[in-house]
Computed example of a mutant assay.
Amino acid sequence: MRRFLPWIIGIGLVIIVAFWVMGLKNTALKYSQAVGKEWGNVDAAYQRRNDLIGNLVNTVKGAADFEKSTLTAVIEARAKATSVTVDPSNISPEQLTQFQQAQSGVSSSLSRLLVSVEKYPDLKANANFLKLQDELASTENQILTARTRFNESVEVYNGYILAMPQSFFLGNYKEKPFFKSVEGADKPVEVKF
């Protein structure tokens, strides 16, 4: 029996290490899935905004003889934003930047639309328009919350896969980028007529 003791200990250690590595990978997978879920929430919030913009544009068109260039800018920005997709499992900083730039275009054109509405008192009093405006404000808050939660899940994921000793065993798990504000977001939007 003593002759087999080193083999039993060796096999036992191999089994313990194998289960430990499986635990590392399973935890990394769980955190990766959490990042994907939170990205889905970000995407859903932006989709809600894009859906509301279509209704808002139609309401504005029907309620006022509105500047066509402003409406066209909103429609084009929305179309561009919906054409940019990001795969959360392979998200890269470049994809995230492209997505953010497209969404920034929507935000900018939407801001110009809402500011230019001030010239139309009938439209400002329109119940449908007011409801859509409230829903857009609520959706912007949802977008902020979804981005924050996404960044929190990325922080947990990156912290786990980059820490020692996990980084030795999780080489195929790549660091995910954080959602950052677009350049110039710290300045107010300038609207000119």
Rank of each mutant, 00 (worst) to 15 (best):
F129I: 03
V106K: 02
V21Q: 13
S107A: 15
W20V: 03
P165E: 02
A28Y: 00
P93H: 07
W20P: 10
G105K: 07
E190I: 09
R78N: 09
T97K: 15
G62M: 06
E183N: 02
D65I: 07
F4T: 05
P188M: 15
F4L: 11
Q100D: 15
N26V: 05
G12I: 10
Q103D: 14
E118V: 04
P165W: 13
D87L: 05
F193D: 03
R2H: 04
Q33E: 15
D122M: 10
R48E: 11
F66W: 04
P6Y: 06
N55L: 10
F168Q: 10
I8A: 12
Y46Q: 09
S83R: 01
A102L: 10
N151H: 07
M164K: 12
L5W: 12
V74H: 05
I143S: 15
T70Q: 02
Y31V: 03
V42T: 09
L29D: 13
Y46F: 13
V57Q: 09
Q47S: 14
P188C: 08
L144M: 05
G23R: 15
N90C: 09
K68Q: 13
L71R: 03
A64S: 12
K131Q: 07
K80H: 08
M164R: 14
I15P: 08
I53Y: 06
T70N: 05
A185L: 07
F129A: 05
A18Q: 11
A125L: 03
R147S: 09
G10D: 02
A127H: 07
I91S: 02
F19W: 06
V156Q: 07
F66A: 09
A18E: 05
G159W: 00
T139E: 10
G12D: 11
A45G: 05
Y173H: 11
K37W: 00
N141H: 03
G62E: 08
K192T: 03
A125W: 00
E183V: 02
W20E: 01
K37S: 09
R2S: 12
K25G: 00
T27R: 13
E135K: 07
A45C: 09
